[in-house]
């Protein structure tokens, strides 16, 4: 996290505080805060990017890969863009941005979901696990190991989404046989065409019986 050299505070903390300070002292704008009108007004009056940011954003508490984060997000920001652009957690991929490819799959409260169609503001208080949080330190998750062993990827771009989806697929009980796996993994597109190898990796982890 970037810390401000003079205050020693993180950008997020500062943004949060500047919003609070700003709202304390400008009562007129408080009334219409977080409305688009206020924001464009602020821009017109040249109130500065920082104040704009404070006006536009709302605090959100997320636990990401086990670490609690207090973020300031715009209501329109997706979880995917917050992960990639604000938190530099770029393991979660943007493949289509419309919920049609599965590359952005993460776990929210243990369930696989599409982060591109999730507004970050709506995840307040939730537990988010991304590919970066799947392994235990240097020790790879069994699914990650199985993907390497069975060469379940080529370019690697859909891979984090495939792996997050694959772990959930087993935990949901939808990996009982090959046909089931293929059906319940069909939300994760791989254009390189690693599908048969991915299925092998999932079967191996499923048959291995480890708790994942």
């Amino acid at each position: 996290m970037n810390k401000n050299k003079t205050t020693g505070k993180s950008e997020e903390e500062e943004n949060h505080e500047s919003r609070r300070d700003f709202l304390k002292t400008t009562s007129i704008l408080t009334a219409i805060a977080v409305s688009p009108v206020a924001v464009s007004k602020a821009a017109e009056y040249n109130l500065g990017e920082k104040i704009n940011h404070a006006l536009e954003t709302t605090p959100v508490n997320l636990t990401i890969n086990g670490i609690k984060k207090q973020l300031a997000v715009e209501p329109r920001s997706t979880l995917l863009d917050v992960l990639r652009e604000q938190l530099n957690l770029t393991g979660t991929k943007k493949g289509c941005d419309y919920g049609q490819c599965g590359a952005c799959t993460v776990h929210v409260n243990g369930q696989r979901v599409l982060s591109c169609l999730s507004l970050a503001i709506m995840q307040d208080g939730k537990q988010v696990t991304t590919i970066e949080g799947l392994s235990k330190g240097d020790e790879l998750h069994p699914m990650q190991q199985a993907f390497i062993k069975h060469d379940g990827f080529q370019c690697g771009y859909c891979t984090p989404g495939q792996i997050m989806s694959a772990v959930a697929c087993i935990n949901e009980g939808h990996a009982e046989n090959k046909e089931d796996i293929k059906e319940f993994m069909s939300g994760n597109i791989c254009r390189c065409g690693a599908y048969p190898n991915i299925v092998k990796a999932i079967q191996e982890v499923k048959n291995g019986g480890q708790k994942i």
Binding site: G99, G102, R112, V113, L117, S118, S165, E172, E183, N188
Partner: peptide
């Protein structure tokens, strides 16, 4: 239900 969308979308 299972014929529609994907597992992730059905979870949301």
């Amino acid at each position: 239900l299972n014929a529609g969308a994907s597992a992730q979308i059905r979870n949301m």
